[in-house]
Amino acid sequence: MTRHAFISMETVFLKSFQYIRPESLEEAGRFLAGDAPVKLLGGGNTLLLRIQSGEEEPAILLDVKHLPGFKDVRYHHNQGLKLGAAVNLQHLVMGLEIRRHYALLHQTAQKLASPQVRNRATIGGTLAWASPVSELAAPMLCYDAVCHVWSSRGLREIPLSEFYLGDFQTALAGDEIITHVHLPAFPNRTYGVYRRQTVRHDGRRMIAAAAVLAYRRQQALTHWRIAVLGVDDRPKRIPEAEAALEGAPTEEEVDRALHIVQEQIHPVDADYARADYRRASLNVLLRQAILDVIQQLQSMRS
C-alpha cells in the first residue's frame, strides 16, 4: 500500500495501533523485548503527530505515565530533586519546590509552549525527543540533571550532558525507559537566566536560546553553566566557556567565553533564520545572560 502522508486525518490515524497501559516496568520490558515495533507514550504531543504523518508506525503504544513512581516528585535539601519521568511540564511551573530551589527551571518552563502542551508533556518524553531546540534541556543541563534509566538488563544513569548524541538521537537504547530525572541540590545563592529569541513570541521558530547559571561562594562566582539551543544538532553545554568564567569574570573573560562558544557551535540554516544570524543572535543573548547572572550574584548580600 502506498502511503500518502498528505491525507493525514482529522481524527483518524493512517494506521491502527494498540494502546497498552503496563502495570509494571517488567511488563513494559516484555513488550519492548518483543518483535512488534513499540513506542513509549508520554504526553503524545510529538509522537501522535508523527504517527499521523506516517513518520512513525508503531504497532504498540505503551502508556508509561501510570507506572509506579513515575509521577513522584521528591525534594531533599541535601539530595536534591527527583522528578518522575511522567511528571508534566506544568508541574515545573506550579511546583513550590521548583520555584524555590530550581528557579531557572521554573522560569524556563513558564515560557514553554502552551498550558495545553505543558499539561500533557512529560519530563521523560520531552527529554527523550531530543530536539535541538528543546527548551527543557537548557535548564536541565545547567542543573546537572541525570537521567535514571531502566531496562530488563538493569538500571543505569546517564548524565544529561552525555544524553544527547545529536540530530534527535539520544544515548537511550531501544529497550530502555527513563524512570526519573535527578537534579542535585544547589546552594541558596544560585542564580540562572534563560534567554531566547524566537520569531513568534510564544517560542515558535526559535532562532537561538541560552541558559546560564552560577552560584556565589564568598566573593567568587563559581560552578558556571552555559547551555545553548538552536545552534547545534543538540542542546549542549560548553564546558570550556564555563571554565573561562570561573571566579569573578572580567569583561575580557566574558568575551573569551563567548569566543569559545562561537568556536564550538555549528548552527544550520532554518527557513526563517540563516546559520550566521543564529550565531550572532546567540552571542547577544548569551552575553546578556552572563552579565545578568554576574550582576545578580554580585548584588546578593554575602
Partner: peptide, 13 residues
C-alpha cells in the same frame, strides 16, 4: 468511513 475512504485513496498510485 473516513478510514475506508483513505484506504481507497491509498491504493491509487
Amino acid at each position: 468511513s473516513t478510514e475506508a475512504a483513505m484506504q481507497a485513496l491509498a491504493m491509487i498510485q
